[in-house]
């Protein structure tokens, strides 16, 4: 079966100044993702996971490496409306900040209508499609006339997901989509994403610092540290039998029954020894 996404040898460095050598955000990163699969990308702040997400959707251009969608290598020189619309169907992204990810002037209906019209949905079918999208993200139709400031954080995130799904992308990148939400709303959004994946067959790339959240919605996990993948495997394996001390440290960092902060410090020290070698 063809991979929906195939990332090979991806690298990105950011220059501090023109003369100062850059900070390497992502280094030699590779992974594959099949249809309707879900992969979690986890790591601490600064591990390069958001840069990876932005490269995947085409907002940041990598220095080296290739990104393929359905066997087609992304060409960064491609311009023009048709190329943009095709890329939009390859991958969409939902952002961390539910307050800034919607245009504050537009009602929910106008925002969804604009996306559908742009992607040539027949004008007679737009109304039905909007109703379907609202239903699929669990929003009542009465909210169609609302503007973003009239919605809660969870509702805004649902609208952002609906907008992304309106394009009918093959892949959905979710960059810390639950971080700004309270715990009960987090659970609702995670359940929604699992449901959407099962119904539509969309592949998910779930970027998060929270291993527990990632564990609930993904089949495999890629652990990033300082731009590199330090561990990759099935979600069950990574969570139950972490092979890398950094993964173990991430797992131990989550407060829970029997949580020992001194154990986290021990693991961090042990990992530093391994990493520095």
């Amino acid at each position: 079966m063809t991979d929906v996404v195939r990332v090979t040898g991806l690298r990105k460095a950011f220059d501090v100044t023109r003369r100062t050598p850059g900070i390497v955000a992502v280094e030699n990163l590779s992974f594959r993702l099949g249809k309707a699969d879900a992969i979690g990308v986890v790591g601490e702040s600064g591990s390069g996971k958001s840069t990876l997400a932005r490269m995947l959707v085409g907002l940041t251009r990598p220095d080296a490496g290739t990104i393929e969608f359905d066997g087609r290598v992304r060409e960064w020189r491609e311009r023009g409306r048709l190329a943009r619309l095709r890329r939009a169907k390859e991958v969409q992204m939902v952002f961390q900040d539910p307050y800034g990810s919607l245009d504050r002037r537009l009602t929910v209906e106008t925002a969804l209508r604009n996306v559908l019209r742009r992607h040539q949905v027949d004008s007679s079918a737009v109304g039905t499609r909007i109703a379907e999208l609202m239903d699929s993200v669990g929003l009542e139709s009465r909210l169609l006339a609302s503007r973003p400031h009239q919605l809660s954080g969870g509702q805004r995130q649902r609208v952002a997901i609906a907008k992304a799904l309106a394009v009918e992308p093959a892949v959905l990148v979710l960059d810390e989509v639950t971080s700004a939400l309270d715990v009960s709303v987090q659970a609702q959004i995670l359940a929604l994403l699992t449901d959407i994946r099962a119904r539509t067959g969309v592949s998910l790339i779930f970027v998060s610092h929270d291993l527990a959240v990632v564990g609930k919605v993904t089949d495999s996990i890629l652990v990033m540290y300082r731009g590199q993948a330090v561990e990759q495997g099935s979600t069950a394996d990574v969570l139950r039998r972490p092979q890398h001390p950094y993964t173990e440290m991430l797992l131990s960092s989550a407060p829970g029954p029997g949580w020992r902060p001194e154990r986290v410090a021990e693991l961090r020290a042990a990992f530093a020894v391994v990493h520095d070698r």
Partner: peptide, 26 residues
């Protein structure tokens, strides 16, 4: 710098249209 601008880009909206139709009115 707001994410909605990136979201518009990802929907396939070109730079000039994005600037004139969506960013300027905001």
């Amino acid at each position: 710098a707001r994410p909605y601008v990136d979201a518009y880009r990802l929907q396939g909206i070109g730079s000039v249209e994005l600037c004139v139709r969506y960013v300027l009115p905001n």
